[in-house]
């Protein structure tokens, strides 16, 4: 793991911030004289599904990668409650599956997570049922359809019962049926107490899934509002433009 600037979170006594698990303060990332993130600040609370909504190239994936510890910001400060940063999983837009059977993919993940052998068999069976992959258990994962691969990626992400599930446009290349399956898995994870951060450029999906919306636009947070409010009366100009379906440029 590279050095990163994720700091242990300072728990506050202020009742309004007690459930904050991730706090970003003034994050900047620039490459080749271009600001990819410029002054990103937000606070994400537990529980529920937070969506990072915004057009392509807004900086959503960058923010998710910062939270996952895959990269670090040039400046600013990102604090994550340690018990959360130690227990997170990430699902990518293009599902990454190992060149092994579906069963072996899950078994290998559990091995890496340190699950004792005696517990693995049962857990794999549960995960196969959860992701509706039982009949495909012995199929090489590379031969699965896109939707099946992504269900496998979800099952693998959930294998260690993470406290935080990061989803980077997990349904962007899937048909509506496969999308529904991933959304069902996402909801059931959230219902069982896993905090979910879902990146999407699809406002319909955000409307179906979100408890709160972080609107990302040109490397900034345009607004952060509860979903009910966002879809009725967004507080930002960008929010209004995005909801009218006009592309934000």
């Amino acid at each position: 793991m590279p050095e990163n600037n994720i700091l242990p979170f300072r728990q506050s006594d202020d009742p309004n911030t007690r459930d904050v698990i991730i706090q970003a303060e003034d994050l900047y990332i620039s490459r080749a004289d271009r600001n990819l993130l410029s002054g990103v600040s937000f606070a994400i609370t537990q529980p529920g599904i937070t969506t990072l909504l915004g057009p392509n190239g807004a900086g959503k994936s960058l923010i998710l990668r910062l939270i996952a510890g895959l990269m670090m910001a040039d400046s600013g400060r990102l604090s994550i409650v340690p018990s959360i940063s130690n227990s997170l999983a990430l699902v990518f837009q293009t599902p990454v599956v190992l060149r092994r059977s579906v069963h072996a993919n899950l078994n290998h993940a559990l091995k890496i997570y340190g699950t004792p052998k005696s517990e693995r068999v049962g857990r794999i069976a549960e995960l196969l049922v959860l992701a509706d992959l039982t009949s495909l258990a012995q199929t090489p994962a590379k031969r699965l359809s896109g939707g099946e691969k992504q269900r496998l990626a979800m099952a693998r992400a959930l294998a260690a019962r993470p406290k935080l599930l990061l989803l980077d446009e997990p349904t962007a290349s899937l048909d509506p049926h496969a999308t529904a399956a991933i959304e069902r898995l996402t909801r059931s994870a959230a219902a069982s107490g896993t905090k979910v951060i879902l990146v999407t450029h699809d406002r319909m999906q955000a409307e179906r899934m979100a408890d709160d919306v972080l609107l990302v636009h040109r490397g900034r947070i345009a607004e952060h509002t509860p979903a009910t409010q966002f879809f009725e009366a967004p507080t930002s100009e960008e929010g209004r433009t995005f909801l009218t379906g006009q592309i934000l440029l």
Partner: peptide, 26 residues
């Protein structure tokens, strides 16, 4: 292809190398 996944999963160096070698077996 695997780097981000294995890093987020917290795979050790040895686990990373053995995973890559096994999956490159063909």
């Amino acid at each position: 292809e695997y780097d981000d996944l294995l890093r987020v999963m917290g795979a050790s160096r040895l686990q990373t190398v053995t995973t890559l070698l096994w999956d490159a077996r063909a």
